[in-house]
């Protein structure tokens, strides 16, 4: 959980690292602050790319997760069993392993007819990150559906609703509220995990940071620039975390 205290500590570390860097600064070189300002536009671009990956991964993961979650509560045991295996696999595999798995499994381009459709790394990374999200959303959905009183099912059945109609028109709409806090929590986790994409060569913020430090060749820049990026993630994820906790508190008393 991201707390405001962690935020303050992070900010303090960032400021302290700048102060230390300034004190140790060699005359004639541009200061650390100047460098940070200089590279901020590029870092921002990278950061936006991370957000883009997180949006798409969440979208794909949620859609697939709803389908997988529906399979988890199927009245048919084989469907339930198969989906259980899928969920367990993707929930318990390390994200980085999944990411590599997808990177090497999928081709870098598709040939459809005579045309070649490129399949860039960042899309593959997005799909790789969507897999654990899918499994976790499926579990959230299953939990939420099972938390709806069976009396709702009875009422729907006695009004001649079929199972499918009951699920989509009566049960799932009631689940949305209950699913929202854990879903948002997973979004925050996913956003932070998008930096994993740097390991498989996607030009997101971590990759760019590494390139900047390499280009500048300044060891005193390392700590300030990484804590700078860390601060950005915190500023983005902290409100989500805050809202999640608020929503959780609100639905808990019901």
């Amino acid at each position: 959980m991201l707390t405001s205290r962690a935020g303050v500590a992070l900010l303090a570390a960032f400021v302290a690292s700048i102060v230390v860097a300034q004190v140790q600064a060699i005359p004639g070189q541009p200061s650390v602050v100047e460098l940070l300002v200089k590279w901020t536009p590029l870092l921002a671009k990278g950061f936006l790319f991370n957000l883009l990956i997180s949006f798409f991964a969440m979208l794909v993961g949620t859609l697939a997760g709803v389908l997988l979650g529906s399979a988890r509560i199927s009245p048919r045991p084989p469907v339930r069993g198969m989906s259980w295996i899928v969920v367990q696999f993707f929930r318990n595999a390390p994200w980085l392993v999944l990411l590599f798995f997808v990177m090497f499994l999928l081709p870098f381009e598709f040939h459809v007819g005579g045309t070649t459709i490129p399949f860039p790394d960042w899309i593959k990374a997005t799909l790789g990150l969507a897999l654990p999200i899918m499994a976790n959303v499926a579990e959230i959905l299953r939990g939420a559906v099972q938390s709806i009183p069976t009396a709702q099912w009875d009422a729907a059945r006695s009004l001649a609703f079929s199972r499918r109609q009951t699920l989509w028109k009566i049960i799932l709409p009631q689940c949305v509220k209950r699913m929202l806090p854990p879903w948002m929590n997973w979004y925050a986790i996913l956003t932070m995990a998008t930096t994993l994409a740097s390991i498989v060569g996607v030009s997101e913020v971590m990759t760019l940071t590494l390139r900047i430090t390499n280009a500048e060749g300044r060891t005193d820049l390392l700590i300030p620039i990484y804590s700078y990026v860390l601060l950005w993630f915190f500023v983005y994820c902290w409100p989500i975390s805050l809202m999640t906790r608020r929503l959780e508190a609100r639905y808990e008393v019901r």
Partner: peptide
């Protein structure tokens, strides 16, 4: 039903 079971 006893507990109404309306759709909330």
């Amino acid at each position: 039903f006893q507990q109404y079971n309306l759709f909330p």
